[in-house]
Design a protein around this nucleic acid. Sequence first.
DNA 1: CCTCAATCGGATCAAATCGTTCCGATTGCG
DNA 2: CGCAATCGGAACGATTTGATCCGATTGAGG
Lengths: 146, 146
Amino acid sequence: MKLSSLADYAIVLMGAAARHCGGVRVSAAMLAAETGVPVPTAQKIVSLLTRAGLLRATRGTGGGIQLARPAAAISLADIVEAIEGPIAMAACVDVGRTEGSAQCALEGSCKVQPHWGAVNGAIKSALGQVSLASLSRDHNTTGAAA
Amino acid sequence: MKLSSLADYAIVLMGAAARHCGGVRVSAAMLAAETGVPVPTAQKIVSLLTRAGLLRATRGTGGGIQLARPAAAISLADIVEAIEGPIAMAACVDVGRTEGSAQCALEGSCKVQPHWGAVNGAIKSALGQVSLASLSRDHNTTGAAA
DNA sequence: CCTCAATCGGATCAAATCGTTCCGATTGCG
DNA sequence: CGCAATCGGAACGATTTGATCCGATTGAGG
């Protein structure tokens, strides 16, 4: 029930990248120095993010990375899905479970499966509500909370 | 962003146990046979659940396990927390972070931390809405979805 | 009262995944 | 044309997770 450190770092990294969005292209190492994330790890995360289409990478001297989409159009769900893969917590909630990899071994008896869909949707919604733009703003107690 | 197999199995196991709640005490092996979960794994899960206070275990011949609380009073959040530990996805959202174990190394720069609280609360709420009693009912498309 | 059987409980071991690190390919500039 | 800086991918190690096994406890039966 906890997301991996990669995704956690990825969010911080993206938040830092959002601040340089309109500016010059920043390198992964520069972003790492800003956020405090280990340089090699930051590089890997940037690679993942770039492959997912969330970041735009420019190679060569003076190159760097920049947001491929506006900060308001990138949500935590996008980042998490880019790193952790599709958000499916029960393995039965996979988007395209066509061939089915052994499933739960008890497809019929599993009364929980239909409910997971709703829970999964709620979680994705919660993550989709928060965008990079929200992270830049001062934490004005976004949405009541608990 | 996906919960471990233990928690997944635990929910199925609890759902099966809920059906025998008012009946006789069932053994962990019997529950495992019903749900299809590997017997040793089911035993371990039952131990975890019992230690968490969600299940009541009776030793000796003819013993077994039973729900310690009514099915309606047990939610998915309880089960998940019993297996996976407290629901904190960023490691900064820990309930009692007094001494702090190295934190994120960038406490001040982390603009994400306050937002995680809201997201975490939303997820816990989503998991808290579904109870064991809900799992017993036919999946009447609980809550719109998507 | 003793023996036996069945059960939970914890400890152990292996596997998979995750996280970190390093090296190579590519590209722009001097 | 050479160099330097950057991303990209691959390899290694560590940690956590998952499955298995054996021992302690308890009840029933003889």
